[in-house]
Design a protein around this nucleic acid. Structure first.
Lengths: 187, 187
DNA sequence: GTCATAGTTTAAGACCATGTGAACCGCAAT
DNA sequence: ATTGCGGTTCACATGGTCTTAAACTATGAC
């Protein structure tokens, strides 16, 4: 019976295809992540790396997940930009290796500060501009202006909330989100 | 100069196109909502209705936003299902009218409980199945099982957090999210 | 009955995101 | 210089989502 771990498992991280249970995990994370507007395969790559618990080469990722060379190249670069994995090269290794980031706060924080915050900010700006324009018209009813103001205020509020979140969450108020980390034990 | 409000503005809610400032608002909301995995036009419809502060007919929505009849039909049905607008028919009116829901908690609560919670739950289930399968293998390293368990635990945690949120948030801990509502004043 | 109006459903097409495969670059070994 | 290997980039194909146009249903007026 073909086992999960090979004898010298250092040099092959996943030739051929995944075990069924591994595929389950990888796809589950992929599906989840897809809903947060990332690519499904980004989630699958991260999950694979996290599960394996060590750095894999692009080729290993490619064959484990059944992706093309180009796709892996794109995916790891994107994930790197989101601080979701790190690219490492051992002294005399001739290939990059990729390892999963396990600090969820770091990842979420980055997504919020780079993406969510930008969106909310631009909505707020549009609402502000709209408010100025509307005020210049002479015939916009008071209640309409009022609703417009309320929307803008809400946007400002959300913007602040996000800022507070990223600024404070690092010093973990959110203990549970540190759960993926390898703390005690080994090493 | 063509004004915003017409003399007898009861019967035309938006013939032709929107005022520039209105378009700004509507599109801003559309862009925002798109990022929460809804259709851009769903956001635009809601924003229009909220801004106008009264129920509009499908035809009015259609011409104000420049959509097709079919699109409006789809959009309002979907929004209705998410409790984002209500469909009303006045006594002797021969057309439905649609009004924006202003209780943000109601809307968010519904989205979380119907969509987000389902996703997280299905991920948790997959992780549980994977964990059982992995335990049946004899050669899965302890650390791997451990990471798998941690992922599952995190999923369970998130699931609980979402449940708590939808169950308690109704009795507004989140005052700011009630901001869109017309409370005091008129009426 | 016919006609008109309001709304729904559907097939077809436009559009966009994602992945592929091949060409390409850079480097090291021979 | 040539070959091999890791990695990147790009044009194109593919697939999914959204919108439209048109057919269709329903309902009320005449």
């Amino acid at each position: 019976m073909r086992g999960y771990a090979r004898e010298h498992d250092d040099d092959d991280g996943g030739v051929g295809t995944l075990q069924p249970w591994e595929a389950l995990v990888v796809d589950a994370v992929g599906n989840l992540i897809e809903f947060w507007n990332f690519k499904r395969n980004q989630g699958r790559v991260w999950a694979l790396l996290y599960l394996r618990g060590r750095a894999l080469t692009a080729a290993q990722i490619q064959s484990a997940l059944g992706l093309s060379k180009g796709a892996v190249s794109m995916l790891v670069r994107e994930l790197e930009q989101w601080c979701v994995l790190v690219r490492v090269r051992a002294p005399h290794d001739d290939a990059w290796r990729f390892a999963a980031e396990t600090d969820l706060m770091k990842m979420i924080g980055r997504v919020i500060s780079e993406r969510e915050r930008g969106i909310v900010a631009s909505v707020r700006e549009d609402l502000e501009r709209a408010e100025r324009l509307a005020k210049d018209e002479h015939d916009v009813p008071r209640e309409v202006l009022d609703r417009l103001r309320r929307m803008r205020t809400l946007a400002v509020f959300v913007e602040r909330a996000l800022r507070v979140f990223v600024d404070t969450a690092r010093f973990d108020a959110f203990g549970a989100l540190d759960m993926l980390r390898d703390k005690g034990a080994r090493h």
